[in-house]
Nucleic acid binder design. Structure first.
Lengths: 220, 220
DNA sequence: GCAGGATATATTGTATACAATAAATGATAT
DNA sequence: ATATCATTTATTGTATACAATATATCCTGC
């Protein structure tokens, strides 16, 4: 087991990210450096550096002399985010399928099972989300496109806040597992077109349902 | 004219970015915080923050306790970068063409003319590069996909260092202008498929030529 | 009461100082 | 001579202190 020494900045990054994704820090909420620093028992320097990193991830917006806020995306922007994912993930999957080994299928299925287990304990939506991300990434990694995978990973993190709506309000979780199962089957039988089509549909359908929820709440 | 007040960190970001893109800081070169701070007459804090931002841009790699280096990409990674651009830029162009107004064509053509002017003064490769970026972005912006455009912009910045090879060694500039002209024509006649195909070719061909140069220099 | 401006307050931006880590150097034993 | 460990040096990471900016409050005149 590696020692995994972490710098304070990294710890702060993870903590703030967790808070934003879990909704404990809401979109648009200002992130005061001093307050966070005191709460996390560090100076403002690591907090600032963490906020900068989170800005790069897209979770935080930083304005000079005015401070940082948790990013708030419009319904339109969320749609763009998901459509971008659809484009990139389909490209990755297309490239990955011919290179998938049995190990990949096994690993993906293990993650899928963990996911259904996490679903039972209904309070573990966050870990379900993480597993969902891991499931998809497992399928993409064989493409060998390191940078693209990382980019998609980041887009997924940015989607996560909104996916929670989908899971809670539109019953996304119940639909997810059969679709994941089918996706795996298609990958295994090397049906590239079928798999990509299902994946695209999987992503865009979620986007649609999230969009209707967001539009409703925006006009409110 | 806006006052455009800049924070020290921002100034440092721009300076270091310029140095990396111009080649004055070479790929793989370590970036010592103290040295940069002294040279730029600031403390290490804005230098650190600048390096973090540049890491997010992909121009710098940061390793805890070991310091930052200018990113060095393998031939394979450069190929991935350009193929990613091809995918995203074609998608943007496809969405943009139906929404392009006359103003867009005029603006794009103005940029194109500036580009040929910059080409005359052969030492202005950097500004040629900036104009090239601007030309393409002008065509993409009507798509209204703010996030995607920004992402592509970043990918272009990352390509710039390598595009310089293409321009200098493979005569990329002479080919560029006719292709840009043709691209504009196709956009104007709303020939989506033709325009996208030309654009893809435009990007992937550059990628190929850069790749051969890089592979040669890697095996050396 | 309200507009405009001066003052005070909160908050961010940056310099300096110190702590922690990693790399380089040198000493010791085999 | 070489490998191993202790010590030094270089460099990064973080806390504290101060400066600059933006926001809020209060005053003044009308």
């Amino acid at each position: 087991m590696t020692v995994e020494y972490k710098t304070r900045t990294q710890v702060v990054v993870e903590e703030i990210r967790k808070r934003i994704l879990s909704g404990s820090i809401k979109a648009g909420e200002p992130l005061r450096q001093a307050a966070l620093a005191e709460e996390l028992n560090v100076s403002r320097i690591p907090v600032r550096e963490a906020l900068l990193q989170l800005e790069a991830e897209g979770l935080v917006e930083f304005e000079a002399h005015k401070g940082a806020t948790a990013t708030r995306l419009s319904a339109e922007q969320v749609t763009e985010l998901f459509e971008l994912r659809a484009l990139l993930e389909c490209d990755l999957l297309r490239r990955a399928i011919p290179l998938m080994t049995d190990e990949v299928f096994k690993a993906a299925d293990r993650v899928r099972l963990k996911m259904t287990a996490a679903f039972e304990k209904s309070d573990e939506i966050i870990s379900w989300s993480e597993l969902n991300t891991e499931f998809h990434l497992t399928l993409y990694r064989p493409a060998g496109r390191h940078k693209t995978v990382e980019l998609v990973h980041n887009l997924m993190i940015n989607s996560d806040r909104y996916i929670r709506f989908h899971l809670l309000l539109a019953g996304g979780v119940t639909k997810a597992d059969p679709e994941h199962h089918a996706l795996l089957q298609l990958c295994q039988s090397k049906d590239i077109e079928g798999a990509c089509q299902l994946l695209q549909q999987h992503i865009l359908e979620a986007a649609n349902e999230i969009n209707t929820i967001l539009v409703r709440s925006e006009s409110r």
